[in-house]
Amino acid sequence: METGERRTATERTWMFPPVTGWTFDQVKDLEVPFDWELVDGVVVVRGETALWHNHVRGALVSVLRAAETGPYAAVSGQCVMVDEHNVVKPDLIVCDPRGLDVFEVECAPVEKVALAVEVVSPTSRQADRVRKPALFSANKVPYYWRVELDRDQKLAVHEYWLNADTLTYFPAPSHPVHQHKLITELPFPVEIDLDSLVGF
């Protein structure tokens, strides 16, 4: 039996990390019937998401792909390597793939991420509003969008910019919350009809 730092996570042991926590190499081949992230060396289960959430995520990545300008690329479902004990999977990212072997890389290095986007679900509120932005800002991701569905089933996108001195996010000065339409220049110019994203 493997011991200490050499052991790898299995379907039976993933919930019992070593004292120092799992590393990505120890959990990357984990075969379990759910999606997960690695947070401080602990495997954290990602909850199921509703149809509207998945539709909005897919529509957002399509719009961002159509608008992207070099060197950026919009990608959904991509894990981001913060460090060996922290690997997260935002709903979508905009990254700079230059210098990466895109056919071999498993997780986008956090320093390559220009924008992280989270679509908030009932089971991800704390993570998307507190933990994820703190993690991304501490690791110098320049922009963060938090997408919320309000009581009228309309989308609101909270746009945040990085304060490079404090490594914290602050609301975008001229448009902290986008409703009905999102218009921004960063990380590249894009205009999004938010009301259309929840339509089927």
Rank of each mutant, 00 (worst) to 15 (best):
F34E: 10
D35P: 06
L38Q: 03
L38K: 03
V39T: 10
V39Q: 14
D40H: 08
V42N: 02
V42L: 04
V45F: 12
R46K: 15
E48D: 14
E48Y: 14
E48C: 07
T49N: 12
H53M: 11
N54G: 14
V56R: 02
S62C: 07
L64I: 06
E68F: 01
G70Y: 03
A73V: 11
A74S: 08
S76I: 04
G77D: 10
G77L: 09
M81Q: 11
M81A: 14
V82Q: 07
V82G: 00
D83K: 09
D83P: 12
E84Q: 15
E84N: 12
N86M: 09
V87E: 10
K89M: 09
K89Q: 10
P90M: 09
D91V: 00
D91E: 08
L92H: 06
I93S: 03
V94K: 03
V94S: 01
C95M: 09
D96G: 05
D96A: 04
G99H: 10
D101F: 10
D101C: 10
F103L: 14
F103E: 15
E104F: 14
E104W: 13
E104L: 15
P109N: 07
P109W: 07
E111N: 09
V113H: 04
A114Y: 02
V117R: 04
V117H: 00
E118A: 06
S121A: 08
P122Q: 12
S124G: 07
R125K: 10
R129C: 07
R129T: 11
R131W: 13
L135I: 06
F136K: 00
A138V: 12
N139K: 08
V141E: 08
V141G: 02
V141M: 07
P142D: 11
Y143E: 03
Y143T: 02
Y144R: 05
R146H: 00
V147A: 06
V147R: 05
D150K: 15
D152Y: 07
L155Y: 02
H158L: 02
H158C: 02
E159H: 08
W161D: 01
W161V: 00
W161C: 01
L162F: 02
L162C: 05
N163R: 13
